[in-house]
Design a protein around this nucleic acid. Structure first.
Ligand SMILES: Cc1cc2nc3c(=O)[nH]c(=O)nc-3n(C[C@H](O)[C@H](O)[C@H](O)COP(=O)(O)OP(=O)(O)OC[C@H]3O[C@@H](n4cnc5c(N)ncnc54)[C@H](O)[C@@H]3O)c2cc1C
Length: 407
DNA sequence: GAGACGTTGAGCTT
DNA sequence: AAGCTCAACGTCTC
């Protein structure tokens, strides 16, 4: 349309660090790689062609929204010049449709994050200045904790929690990259990819580049990089996982935080994704990705689908014996189960000894904690210990047998 | 074709 | 705390 009308169109790559077409041209055969270290070699070269980010000043005028284009009809038409236009039920004074006009119900979560670039920059700067830059310089992703009680609060945090801002373009990946580089310059002994904070931004770029150059990246079938796995299809198991009633408090607490806050820590995503797919329930990673896309504030198909393939050993990562235990893993971070107590208040008075496997608590303890397993909180829908016993048998797959267990 | 290596496991031995 | 083993791994380098 612009061309027909003689309007010049200027296109810039801004959502990623690099121009993904140019980045892929640096890959052998123009094909994306599925290994991070080779990716970094190509990225290093392309980064040299990336100009410094321009941080635009805030606009003087509110943007003009064409009500016809937005499908709202003439009555909702407003513009910057008609500043006296009253807000209608369907849209505010800037023409932004109301939640009701978009057929959305009232807010269901008490957690409200302020959006926008101003807020994003303030949050980024808060991270950068933490411990005078030492926090950013020392950032090692695998050793951050997934059980923070108030991850978006103003105090010190486990990870940056900037993902919703990056997803919506409130925060430029290039701005973040440059600001972190400035901190590194002042701290010569800073961490390095893949575990550093720069490394995290490069993981984002990695999945974007891979998605950009891979047909059917978002699914298993007809996806050339995705291992074809005969997942089972059990709607009951999927629903129990989605609705936080697996009977494993760590899994259910994370799924509850996901629904309430729209965000969980990276390692909590690992835990619930592993549990749904290769670890325990053997359900398709695509089903899990759909749930994440509904519930995550930072939901991003390139990153989300890529990480689901990773966790399910469908691409990028294949060490199947690195498997998360829904009981042992959270104990490393939260011995007393404060995170579980916050998100699953039914269990708040449960003894710490049984907080991650409450079905093992004697009935007297259950009564004392006011929480009967099977009644106030579900029994486990799957036996993780049994599955582990199976993988640990030192036998060829064909000779393995399920050990007998008590009902 | 062998060997190193892979952001983030568990459970055991030393 | 650090090192070892998983007996269903895949990719890259030499
Ligand atoms: C199954 C699964 C699904 C995921 N789905 C999403 C998603 O939909 N959207 C999303 O943004 N992230 C997703 N992630 C990646 C990661 O968990 C989040 O980006 C991270 O937890 C966001 O928190 P943060 O901003 O504090 O991260 P930080 O550790 O502070 O990292 C800074 C930024 O780097 C990027 N980043 C960090 N980790 C990754 C990663 N593993 N892959 C790609 N980019 C990364 C993000 O943009 C993040 O905001 C997923 C991970 C898993 C295991």
């Amino acid at each position: 349309m612009a061309r027909e009308r003689g309007v010049q169109v200027v296109t810039r790559w801004g959502h990623t660090l690099t121009d993904l077409d140019a980045l892929l041209k640096r890959h052998p055969g123009g094909k994306p790689t599925t290994t991070y270290s080779s990716f970094l070699n190509h990225l290093d070269k392309q980064l040299k062609a990336v100009p410094l980010a321009v941080l635009n000043k805030p606009r003087q005028l509110p943007p003009v929204v064409d009500a016809d284009l937005a499908g709202l009809g003439a009555s909702a038409a407003t513009s910057a010049s008609s500043s006296a236009a009253p807000a209608s039920d369907a849209a505010d004074a800037f023409g932004v449709p109301s939640a009701a006009a978009l057929c959305l119900g009232p807010a269901t979560s008490g957690v409200i994050l302020r959006g926008g670039e101003t807020e994003a920059l303030a949050r980024m700067e808060a991270c950068l200045s933490q411990q005078g830059g030492a926090w950013v310089a020392a950032f090692e992703k695998p050793s951050t904790s997934p059980t923070e009680i108030d991850p978006f609060g103003q105090h010190t945090r486990s990870t940056t929690c900037l993902s919703p801002y990056l997803k919506f373009g409130c925060l430029s990946a290039r701005v973040l990259h440059e600001r972190v580089a400035a901190v590194y310059a002042a701290h010569p002994k800073h961490a390095k990819p893949p575990t550093s904070l720069h490394g995290q931004v490069y993981w984002r770029e990695f999945y974007y580049a891979c998605a950009h150059g891979t047909p059917n990246y978002e699914m298993m079938a007809a996806n050339p990089i995705c291992r074809q796995i005969p997942w089972e299809d059990d709607p009951e198991l999927l629903a129990a996982w989605r609705e936080a009633r697996t009977g494993y408090p760590w899994i259910d607490a994370a799924m509850t935080q996901l629904r309430e806050e729209g965000w969980i820590h990276h390692l909590a995503r690992h835990a619930v994704a592993c549990f749904l797919t290769r670890g325990d329930l053997w359900q398709s990673w695509e089903k899990g990705a759909e749930v994440f896309e509904e519930l995550l504030l930072d939901a991003d198909p390139a990153i989300n689908r890529g990480n689901w393939m990773w966790l399910s050993c469908s691409c990028f990562f294949y060490q199947y014996f690195r498997c998360y235990s829904p009981v042992a893993f959270p104990k490393k971070y939260d011995k007393d189960g404060a995170y579980v107590r916050k998100w699953l208040p039914q269990l708040k008075d449960f003894p710490a000894k049984y907080i991650y496997e409450p079905w093992k608590a004697p009935i007297a303890d259950q009564k004392k904690a006011n929480c009967i397993i099977g009644q106030d909180y579900p029994k486990p829908i799957v036996n993780h210990e049994l599955k582990r016993a199976l993988t640990q048998q030192k036998l060829p797959m064909s000779k393995k047998v399920l050990p007998r267990v008590e009902p």
